[in-house]
Simulated scan of single mutants.
Amino acid sequence: WLALADAFYEASMDTSQGGKAIPIIFGIDAVHGQSNIVGATLFPHNIGLGAARNPELLRRIGEITALETRATGMEWTFAPTVAVPQDDRWGRTYEGYSESPEVVASYSAAVVEGLQGKVGSPDFLDGRHVIASVKHFLG
């Protein structure tokens, strides 16, 4: 993954034929860990984490996911998923932390801070963190 990410970046910055350098930003789904890497930490899926009722745990999971995602050369994750499933017949209810908006709200802020670092601090979006994409809210 790192070699692939580096190759994409180098190609995006290549001006040898008169083109403009447009740096690529590489993103990936890392919803419950960077599951694309052999040996990465895989965490329970969101529905299981919701049962823990522990935002601090989610912040730490975000930090670990950010570190393992950055190790692959990627700087952006399509996470967290903040769907609030209300109908158990939906095939992706496991992607939601809870059908309680309060639980989802407390988790989403914690995960984003874990992934990105604390806004206003020196570690915000540094080399140990990734850009978060809060997704599926309206869906």
Score class of each variant (00 low, 15 high):
21 A>I: 09
85 P>W: 07
101 P>V: 02
109 A>T: 15
70 R>D: 02
5 A>F: 09
83 A>I: 10
108 S>K: 12
109 A>C: 12
39 G>N: 06
53 R>K: 05
7 A>C: 10
85 P>E: 10
47 I>Q: 05
5 A>G: 11
138 L>E: 14
135 K>N: 00
25 I>G: 03
118 K>N: 01
38 V>N: 11
12 S>I: 06
36 N>F: 12
28 I>K: 02
17 Q>T: 06
107 Y>S: 09
23 P>Y: 14
96 G>F: 08
45 H>S: 02
59 R>C: 05
30 A>F: 07
23 P>F: 15
76 W>L: 14
68 E>S: 00
125 L>T: 07
86 Q>Y: 10
84 V>I: 15
14 D>H: 11
108 S>L: 12
68 E>M: 01
42 L>A: 09
45 H>A: 07
126 D>E: 10
60 R>D: 07
122 P>V: 00
105 A>H: 00
131 I>T: 12
72 T>M: 08
131 I>S: 10
76 W>C: 12
123 D>I: 04
35 S>W: 10
37 I>R: 14
15 T>L: 09
75 E>T: 15
32 H>V: 06
61 I>G: 03
104 V>T: 06
28 I>L: 11
28 I>P: 07
87 D>C: 12
91 G>L: 09
39 G>S: 06
131 I>F: 15
122 P>T: 01
52 A>S: 13
132 A>F: 05
112 V>N: 02
77 T>C: 08
24 I>R: 06
24 I>N: 04
113 E>V: 05
136 H>W: 08
129 H>A: 12
33 G>A: 05
58 L>N: 04
15 T>A: 05
102 E>P: 00
32 H>M: 07
25 I>M: 14
58 L>E: 02
62 G>T: 11
139 G>M: 13
139 G>D: 14
139 G>S: 10
15 T>R: 12
3 A>S: 13
49 L>T: 06
7 A>T: 15
16 S>Y: 00
51 A>C: 00
7 A>D: 15
4 L>Q: 15
58 L>V: 04
25 I>L: 14
32 H>E: 09
3 A>C: 08
92 R>V: 02
80 P>T: 04
54 N>E: 08
64 I>T: 11
64 I>H: 02
56 E>S: 05
111 V>Q: 13
120 G>Y: 00
88 D>W: 13
13 M>P: 00
97 Y>P: 03
52 A>R: 04
121 S>I: 03
34 Q>G: 05
50 G>D: 05
84 V>Q: 10
76 W>G: 08
62 G>N: 04
1 W>K: 01
27 G>L: 04
61 I>E: 03
97 Y>S: 06
29 D>P: 07
138 L>A: 15
106 S>G: 06
32 H>Y: 14
94 Y>C: 09
2 L>Y: 15
9 Y>S: 13
69 T>R: 02
112 V>I: 07
54 N>R: 02
33 G>Q: 03
134 V>K: 03
66 A>G: 12
110 A>Y: 04
53 R>N: 07
2 L>E: 09
52 A>E: 02
74 M>L: 15
49 L>G: 07
83 A>W: 10
90 W>N: 13
